[in-house]
Write a protein that binds this DNA or RNA. Structure first.
Lengths: 220, 220
DNA sequence: TTTATTTATTAGTCAAGCCTAATTTTATTC
DNA sequence: GAATAAAATTAGGCTTGACTAATAAATAAA
């Protein structure tokens, strides 16, 4: 059994690795956790003794299999809880992360599996990050901004960057929510505005600023 | 903001008071938390400084208004999460308590209210304990053993006292679950067994022991 | 009322997890 | 290669919330 703090370290190391960081150093971890490198060194020692990670000065920190299993479970719970908070409790995109940070540490043998089943085995969380399966497998994600999609391409809304009331209200008016399907019809060179098709019927034009704040996943 | 530990103290003090304990002493708290009286004395000092409780040697510990508000919120969350775990995730009566002990400390402004709404504003948790309302009001702990109900009365199952597999399986066989309607048809003086009507059709006889372990709420 | 017994309290420790400041090591740059 | 900068580490300290052991106070019994 791990403490809350240990779980956070394992999770951060897992995330840094997934983000493609080649060498995971004490300072990188310290920055990600907003704490002191000296504290990180202590914890690396502790987690190494517990055989949850390995540390070589030249290669940086690596999770052991056991450490990765724990990290994946924490991430899985975090993302499942985010889906719950958004879909079932009606929280906003900008609120769910902090609550899920607490919920991810709730322990019980099959909690994640039950939650997964209850939510209908979602593939992605509301930020577009893939939810690891019970066996640890993770779907690959290709997240990008609507503004960067090519003409004719189809995509799915996974998140928003701007969470201001003005933007969210505008989204609501356009009936754009999570998982909404959007096709990029045409890019207007003059002002970089974009013609999009929302769902299968509603065609409309949005500004560059708008398109830069909508995080989507390419589908085709 | 309180720590997890502080919240647990406030909750225990609230519960001891609700249980009717006249004088809440450091030893009583220590026993309820299975820890040392010396630790309790330390915490009483700390919580008194924070104005969350008052302590007089003669009267014991009392929660201040602020302390009670916090305790009620923790209890409210605990019981709401228990309902969630049982009804939505399908956990058993005997598993939900430990998980709710963790979930009750998850903080967010309107978490309890959203959960309450999502669950359909339940009045009781699966153990038959009343769920405090947002304003702190608590329904009367209205736990009645089937054995204490009068003949002809109608009631609703709110919880079980015994959570052994044997009892739960028996309940399943009889198709008795939470919210099942039961009418007390007749009491047999010889061995205190009871004839009940489950729902509107199934009539059966159950033992005294059985009836003592079913917590119900009188309806009529 | 005096003695026993139970409670409460104080004093001193300890582990976890963080911190700062100082030092050593490793990378960079001139 | 030497000087400088950045990163890693060590040493020592702090806070929280627990503990044990010793003492003081209150309660109960003789």
């Amino acid at each position: 059994m791990q403490t809350l703090s240990e779980e956070n370290y394992l999770k951060i190391i897992y995330n840094l690795d997934k983000q493609g960081l080649k060498k995971i150093t004490p300072t990188a971890i310290a920055e990600a956790l907003s704490n002191n490198p000296a504290s990180v060194v202590d914890m690396i020692k502790k987690l190494t003794e517990k055989k949850l990670l390995q540390y070589e000065k030249t290669k940086g920190v690596k999770l052991t299999e056991k450490g990765r299993d724990i990290a994946i479970m924490v991430v899985r719970k975090h993302r499942l809880w985010e889906v719950f908070l958004l879909e079932k409790l009606g929280y906003g995109w900008d609120e769910i992360h902090d609550i899920a940070e607490q919920l991810e540490h709730v322990h019980h043998t099959d909690l994640a599996d039950r939650l997964d089943k209850f939510l209908g085995q979602p593939q992605y969380d509301p930020h577009g990050d893939p939810i690891p399966k019970a066996n640890g497998e993770t779907a690959i994600t290709y997240k990008t901004l609507l503004a960067e999609i090519e003409e004719g391409k189809n995509c799915r809304v996974v998140a928003v960057k701007d969470t201001s009331a003005a933007f969210l209200q505008y989204l609501k008016k356009l009936e754009i929510g999570i998982n909404t399907n959007i096709t990029l019809v045409e890019k207007i060179p003059f002002d970089n505005s974009i013609v999009i098709m929302i769902g299968k019927t509603l065609k409309t034009t949005v500004s560059k600023i708008f398109a830069e704040n909508l995080v989507v996943q390419e589908l085709s």
